[in-house]
C-alpha cells in the first residue's frame, strides 16, 4: 500500500474527536480515503465532514446567543 500523507486540510479523526482526542488523519491517495493510525476509522472526506457535524450534538446551546448573565 502507498505511503499515507496529510490530506488537503488537517482533518481529524471524528471517532477520536468524540472521545476528545485530536488525531490527524492520514490520506491514502490510491484508495482515496482517510484513515486513523490510532483507532480503526476509515472514511472519505465527505463522510468526515458529516461526522464532524454530528459530533456537535452535545453543544445544545453552543449555536445560540445567550443574553441573560
Amino acid at each position: 500500500m502507498p505511503q499515507g500523507r496529510k490530506g488537503r486540510l488537517n482533518y481529524r479523526c471524528p471517532i477520536c474527536f468524540a472521545r476528545e482526542i485530536d488525531m490527524d488523519l492520514f490520506y491514502d491517495q490510491a484508495e482515496d480515503e482517510y484513515y486513523c493510525i490510532r483507532c480503526p476509522y476509515i472514511d472519505t472526506e465527505k463522510e468526515i465532514l458529516e461526522l464532524n457535524e454530528k459530533n456537535k450534538f452535545r453543544y445544545k446551546s453552543g449555536f445560540i446567543r445567550i443574553r441573560d448573565f
Binding site: F17, G62, R65
Partner: peptide
Amino acid sequence: GLVYKGEKIPYLYN
C-alpha cells in the same frame, strides 16, 4: 472544538 456553524461563532460571544 467545532463550536461553530459556518461563519457564525455565537459561543465565542457568549
